[in-house]
């Protein structure tokens, strides 16, 4: 995982396309904040800022998970990586982990847009909780994106599924709005997506009120992330076995 992380970090630092979210996140932040400000709802600024950050974190993870497999396929090295004696899921997870820092950076950008661009004050009332929630969220994101990489192994064009794995997760994960905005029947589904726990906890950590049930909520984020990683290891192994059997590794 460490070697994979080093490869990805060096690659990303030299590839402007991996920094795409650093350019687009502030614009997305402006969109959310404009909706909030136009409707005189400054009480929702935290939703806009946290929402942009989670948006960026998830975008980077899915982008890299898909990009890793697509690039290995283009360079004809996917066969070699799958033939290596280490679990491919761990390689993918290792490559996603370092770029989570780029995702986290979008949270800082969004905060800057809100304070400098829109002139709002957004103090972090519980910085300790916010920091721990952010770190656990970054880890859970990397684990979940690893599981989703299964789709990319069996797909010919990862871009199509990268697109499909964005907004449905932003809706079900309640990254900008609370799950209560969704119809009742769909809300339980949102609760199995770690982003909904992360968004709630991060939003609460910004408010001045006391934050309840911090440990169980952190546990929910970490637990869902761990389950996703385990599933990812199993599913990617199955997908890789199938690809080896059918000879479709480079030709899915």
């Amino acid at each position: 995982m460490a070697a994979a992380a080093k490869v990805q970090w060096n690659t990303s630092m030299r590839a402007p396309e991996h920094m795409l979210i650093v350019v687009t996140a502030p614009v997305m932040s402006v969109i959310f904040l404009s909706i909030v400000r136009y409707n005189d709802r400054d009480d929702l600024v935290a939703n806009a800022v946290i929402g942009t950050g989670l948006f960026g974190i998830w975008f980077v993870a899915v982008d890299v998970a898909g990009g890793v497999i697509q690039n290995e396929r283009w360079m004809s090295t996917l066969d070699l990586v799958l033939a290596a004696p280490r679990a491919f899921a761990l390689v993918v997870c290792g490559r996603i982990l370092p770029v989570m820092l780029i995702g986290a950076f979008t949270l800082a950008e969004s905060w800057l847009v809100a304070t400098v661009g829109f002139g709002v004050q957004l103090p972090v009332a519980h910085p300790g909780i916010a920091l721990i929630a952010l770190i656990v969220t970054l880890l859970a994101t990397a684990c979940t994106a690893t599981m989703l990489a299964t789709f990319f192994v069996i797909s010919r064009d990862t871009t199509i599924y990268q697109n499909a794995l964005s907004y449905p997760f932003y809706i079900l994960g309640g990254v900008v709005f609370p799950l209560s905005v969704l119809p009742d029947w769909i809300q339980p589904l949102g609760r199995v997506i770690f982003l909904s726990w992360s968004a709630d906890l991060l939003r609460d950590s910004l408010s001045g009120d006391e934050v309840h049930d911090v440990v169980p909520r952190l546990g929910a984020i970490a637990g869902l992330g761990a389950i996703a990683l385990l599933l990812g290891i199993v599913l990617i192994r199955k997908a890789a076995d199938r690809a080896r059997r059918t000879g479709m590794v480079s030709l899915a």
Binding site: I35, N163, A164, P168, I171
Partner: peptide
């Protein structure tokens, strides 16, 4: 199949997502 399950799913969910942001921030008209 990929148009429906990939691209269209993204576009529909994108529009619904922003619609829900509007619902949260304002009223039905927003």
């Amino acid at each position: 199949k990929t148009w429906l399950t990939g691209w269209m799913l993204r576009l529909v969910s994108q529009v619904v997502f922003f619609g829900l942001v509007g619902k949260m921030a304002g009223d039905r008209i927003t």
